[in-house]
Write a protein that binds this DNA or RNA. Structure first.
Lengths: 230, 230
DNA sequence: CTAGTATTCAAATAATCAATTGAATACTAG
DNA sequence: CTAGTATTCAATTGATTATTTGAATACTAG
């Protein structure tokens, strides 16, 4: 085997990693998988893709080794194949944010003021939450909350937020988080809350990054991990 | 703009970063750019692509913000748009190595024994080089050496290695490096040297990573940075 | 100005990839 | 076993992307 061939083979192998992450839908899937394992159907529903299409995308990512699958009964549960992948995704996001002017603008599209919307760093949040100084708000769907959340966080899915405002304190800061730096759930929540006169901020990044950082995670005990439909 | 639209727009923007790195040729170009700025023609020659094709690939990476260009006289000099990109590339390589069994195998295809070929960490090399305990060998072409190298490193391009063996000490360890963890130059050099009875090892990764790690870099004074052909 | 060079562009073709469809597989429950 | 469900596969279509070609642009040197 010639040196030139070897080189090209290596590059195209490494490019397979890139290929797994060069499509919007696949990125979205990866982001959901960063939160825990999911079935094909669940992922299809979350992303709005057809089941077959979802399956195809998962297939290519599986061949690139980014995603692993385990079959249990009727369902195939997919998950990320390692923590390194979360780091790759963060790296891509950071690059996108700094190099593509559009992204930052899009992310802030909903928000009026930027000043007070600076996210609160994870460590700082952890300390202040321990002292009972803030209310931590998890705005993801209950299943995601159940499979792991920031200790002491209250789960109010975004959809229910409007109805459940009275459960939240007006005299204390509320810190919302969701799936990651580009997940719009927390942005929305903060926007809604601020509109209603609450003192609200976002947490830095989201839950996958929190777990990745090695910070404590709380789980709801009897997780119904094989719920039929969500 | 709906929430769903916003989300998809963000994902597809981030995917643009992935797209810049999901093609073998582009990865190769990025790797060369990690060593310093290059003209289109130089890159085309290095990669074996046509000039037009190289230009096209550079164009898409430029639009993704990974690569920047500066025109000086007749030439356009391309370079990486930031250090974060070196990190992204490392991340991809690490993933490829751990998740794609093929890559590790390919990289080691030339090598007989693995044991004594463990690379020497950068920090360790720096210390031992300062004490004069090792000979550091840069096996890249002279132009790359000139634009920056490990302090005290001796430049012997791989092609000339066989002829210039007498310049190297037999009683001292020789540590070779080249462009990065998957660059085969250093592998080849080590294999050749060991065959001739030298004590040779590779340095961890390569020069771009050395610089990225913030370690000292030496430059040849009067760099002829606008050399016509290389 | 002209000749020469580096790069880019535009258009065309070749190659690859995404998404859909309908059938096939693999499993569970009865 | 049969009926039902989740997932995958194979084949097709449509869309995007890679590469080549030849011409256009932008610059330098004389």
């Amino acid at each position: 085997m010639s040196r030139q061939n070897l080189k090209q083979q290596i590059y195209s192998q490494v490019a397979r990693i890139g290929k797994a992450a060069c499509h919007g839908h696949r990125l979205e899937l990866l982001e959901y998988l960063a939160q825990g394992e999911r079935t094909v159907e669940a992922l299809a529903k979350l992303t709005g893709l057809s089941v077959a299409n979802t399956s195809q995308h998962l297939r290519v990512m599986r061949h690139s080794g980014l995603v692993s699958a385990r079959k249990d009964g009727l369902y195939v549960y997919y998950s990320l194949a390692g923590d390194e992948i979360v780091r790759l995704l963060s790296s891509m996001r950071r690059l996108a944010e700094s190099h593509l002017a559009d992204v930052g603008r899009l992310v802030r599209a909903y928000l009026t003021v930027k000043d007070e919307l600076e996210p609160i760093p994870r460590r700082e949040l952890l300390e202040r939450a321990r002292k009972g100084m803030v209310t931590v708000l998890d705005v993801r769907p209950p299943e995601e909350y159940a499979s792991g959340h920031v200790p002491g966080a209250k789960n109010v899915p975004l959809k229910e937020l409007a109805k459940r405002l009275k459960e939240l304190p007006k005299n204390q800061e509320v810190v919302a988080y969701c799936r990651g730096p580009h997940c719009v759930l927390a942005f929305d929540a903060v926007a809604q809350l601020r509109e209603k006169g609450f003192r609200a901020r976002r947490m830095q990044d989201g839950f996958p990054e929190w777990r990745e950082a090695g910070l404590p995670v709380e789980k709801t005990a009897a997780t119904e991990s094989r719920s039929g439909k969500n």
